[in-house]
Amino acid sequence: MPVESGTCIIETAGLTKRYGDICALAPLDLQVSEGEWLTVMGHSGSGKSTLLNLLGGLDRPTAGRLLVGGEDLLAFSEDHLARFRREAVGIIFQQHHLIPYLTALENVMMAQYFHSVPDQAEARQALERVGLGKRLANRPGELSGGEQQRVCIARAIINSPKLLLGDELTGNLDHKSTRLVMELLKELHEEEHFTLVLVTHNQEVAGWGGRTLFMDDGKLVKDLRHERKGDDPS
């Protein structure tokens, strides 16, 4: 088990999100060190996606403190938050959201464009790295679910984020594809040293990480550190 020696990248205190009466996220205190691989599990409706959206700067908490990379996201303006999203975070969704009218390559370049300047060679390299070197010019509609998810991964890591967030990113994939994607993530995690937070229902996926949070009804019920699966392939 690797020792998490890095500094704290995520630090929350009393983080709360309410939708009217519904408390999607009860006051939550959490520390995540840099380079950690964290998995979040829980029942449907337990507030996992809500937590992830808050961490990614997509949404604002109702109350509490939220520091990412030492910066207080609550103090950010809307535009500053957008900048935070494009520079510090990569997000991968369950329904591998890709822009339908752009090719795989162009989808990756779109992320580069919003971040700084599009760079075709670099985007191609990123896609080659996720094993899609031959599907560059295909639109999302022409790719399989697993391939689409890999395009999303390439897009999420293209701007070298500090934080990579995945919301049920293997939810729609079969066992084999899931494995492929997870191996890819592990490889990237080792090379790029980003912090990874994955939300999943899948016990097997959770095994790839080094720490698992269990949530129920917006509350953190268990925080478990464990062996990482990829270290001894089964």
């Binding site: 997509l58 535009d79 999203r85 975070v89 997000i91 959201h97 822009i99 919003f114």
Partner: peptide, 15 residues
């Protein structure tokens, strides 16, 4: 959905 996506990718509202 597409607009939400590019906003999530970090596009500013202006962009």
């Amino acid at each position: 959905r597409e607009i939400g996506l590019i906003k999530a990718m970090g596009a500013s509202r202006r962009a």
